[in-house]
Design a protein around this nucleic acid. Structure first.
Length: 328
DNA sequence: GACTGGGTAGCTTCCAGCAA
DNA sequence: TTGCTGGAAGCTACCCAGTC
């Protein structure tokens, strides 16, 4: 069983855009000297003029140990498995993979940023809504800032005014991550009135997207569950307007996805119904069913506007999807 | 062996203070 | 004003001795 992921992401010394630089320096020092804890503390004090607190240094060292960058044996500190991987690969992608694997929320933050710029306040809200287990106070932006700073120092996020946006590298990561993390162990902490997310995760095996992406999509629709009316997040699939295998560049685009029940997802993919530019449900005229559920939620809704915000889906994606349907 | 309670360490949040 | 560090405080998990 994978260890619990860390809720708190600790800032590194040296400033908000230099976390990675500081991490590399720590790894280089530890690799070269295999220091004792006193030597490691001394190195920090010597490297950063304004750092004196042993407790503060130990907090960083402890965090690096938990992530796996460092390990302690025989009173001496050495590079851990994650540290070796990071040093040997020497690229941001590997470092980001390690950080996302060990810390809650970094991936969902990147997904959320792919929809547009976010202020620190918005980042804080997004992290709390998607990961209630983080548990920090509403309005608190320190934790949001630390997360953003790690991504900034990796070159995935940059400042734009008082908000933060994805860089080209950040966007590339998001496009690959949805499928790459589809077998992630993490399940949302949000519950379905007595049925825990963990229960859902064990009973529904066909997860095909990163669960953090799935949680981000569901959160984006803010409790509205179009078409299917299913209000249990654990029972929802993520349906793509432009198919993931044909348009991999849009698979992580939040304007290309919609939370649907598994049944409605299958019906959508098979062209039983679609959505027009005005967000009205269009049903394939040849579709017949004895199912009360499908009659009520699809056939009887033909032509009705789906309750969702105007900017939820990209009209161009809908048009392209519908162009493939002969009956539209 | 099982249970309980105290002590300790570690993790996390939050806020004050400082420097640019 | 903003960004960063230091440090206090709350919470939790774990260890261990004492008791039944």
């Amino acid at each position: 069983m994978a260890p619990d992921r860390l809720r708190s992401i600790v800032p590194m010394f040296g400033g908000g855009t230099r976390y990675v630089e500081t991490l590399d320096a720590v790894l280089e020092f530890v690799e070269a000297h295999q220091p004792t804890i006193d030597e490691l503390v001394g190195w920090h004090r010597g490297s950063f003029s304004n750092v004196t607190s042993r407790d503060s240094i130990m907090r960083r060292v402890s965090y690096l140990r938990q992530v796996g960058f460092l390990q302690q044996a025989d009173e001496r500190w050495r590079i851990g498995d994650a540290g070796w991987e990071s040093v040997q690969q020497g690229d941001v992608g590997t470092l980001l993979w390690i950080m996302c694997d060990r810390n809650v929320g970094l991936r969902s933050l990147l997904y959320a940023l792919s929809a547009g710029p976010m202020t620190l306040e918005e980042v804080s809200e997004q992290q709390l809504d998607t990961h209630p287990e983080l548990g920090w106070s509403r309005g608190e932006t320190d934790m949001a800032r630390q997360r953003v700073n790690w991504l900034r120092s990796m070159g995935l996020v940059k400042e734009r005014g008082d908000a933060y946006v994805l860089t080209g590298e950040g966007r590339s990561f998001v496009e690959d991550a949805v499928a790459e993390w589809s077998d992630s162990e993490w399940t949302p902490a949000m519950t379905d009135d007595g049925m825990s997310a963990g229960t859902c995760a064990t009973t529904i095996h066909a997860r095909e997207v990163d669960p953090e992406f799935r949680a981000t999509v569901i959160l984006r629709h803010d409790g509205e569950f179009p078409v299917s009316g299913v209000d249990r997040p654990g029972l929802l699939d993520i349906a793509h307007m432009l198919a993931r295998n044909e348009f991999p560049e849009y698979r992580a685009d939040l304007a290309n996805v919609l939370p649907l029940s598994k049944t409605h997802h299958a019906a959508f993919d098979r062209g039983v119904f679609t959505i027009d530019r005005d967000y009205r449900l269009q049903v394939n005229p040849s579709f017949e069913t004895q199912s009360e559920l499908l009659q009520r939620t699809i056939i009887e809704q033909d032509g009705e506007r789906i309750p969702m915000a105007d900017e939820s889906l990209n009209p161009e994606y809908l048009a392209q999807h519908n162009a493939e349907l002969a009956w539209v």
